[in-house]
Amino acid sequence: MAVRTFIEAIREGLAEEMRRDPAVIVLGEDVGKKGGVFLATDGLWAEFGDDRVIDTPLTESMIVGTSVGAALNGLRPVAEIQFADFIFPAFNQIVSEAARMRYRTVSGATVPMVIRAPFGGGVHGALYHSQSVEAFFAHVPGIKTVVPSTPYDAKGLLRASIRDEDPVLFLEHKKMYRSVRGEVPEGEYTVPIGRAAVRRTGRRLTVVAYGLMVHYALEAAERVAEEGIDCEVVDLRTLRPLDRETLLASVRKTGKCLVVYEDNRFGGYGAEIAAIVAEEAFEYLDGPVSRLAGPDTPAMPYNHVLEEWFMLSPAKIADAIRRLAAY
């Protein structure tokens, strides 16, 4: 199997889906000749041309709104929002339009489309190039939210997202683009939306994470393993629809649950995980369902000391594991 970086896997997934299905188009800011600011679409314009790889003006609402229209008229658009931080001008088109079209037409009109957006911090991106936006969208019925953590999943889940009949928000942690490598098989495969993966098995405590935090959690689990704390790490992979079975099976086995997310804590996606575990695994719990998340500041600050203060790390996660394990 070939080894690919996270972003190479995404690029290959896009190219292969575009070759497979002429209805797939890509649109966004700088996605054409430049190949995207992160080079996720590099080479696509040369292969597929102006019609299918469309450089748009700096207009996020238009990028999503025209994708909705193009999907209504038979295409499968893959829209790129250059940074997840800039998705908010499109919030209305995503929440009021894309996510509701099926419901409000009783499936008469549907919008199979993907919105790709790099999210997350730790790259000196400050307030407006670091945000985690998943909580805003995972809240909304009618749109799926996918957050892969490995190159294999990135490619397989992107393929599944493009083929899905509903809109999918596909969040890519930008710090992983070149720092995470992994094996990606040649040829056709997909990873189903809505299935979590147990990345590490253990009996003492369950750590629930997604995106970059999966890698940090695995590193933290290795550290505490040396101290005799045996952790299980669940990678959610899809935030909505959520794989409750895998989540609950793990917590019912370990009796303790630490939810790790990079976004600020209050009202974050991890709060929903904590609520579900409390509701549905209460009798199995041997300690408080705990959240480790970013501080409740409006966004991530720039200065490297402040950024490190904001970001989670394997060390911070290991500390939280120790505290919960000792409860």
């Binding site: 238009m62 709104g65 025209t66 909705v68 193009a70 999907a71 209504l72 008229n73």
Partner: peptide
């Protein structure tokens, strides 16, 4: 006014198809 972007996308799809 959200519909104006849907119509724009429909027109784009018509052109591409």
């Amino acid at each position: 006014a959200t519909q104006i972007l849907h119509a724009a996308g429909i027109a784009l799809a018509a052109r591409i198809r």
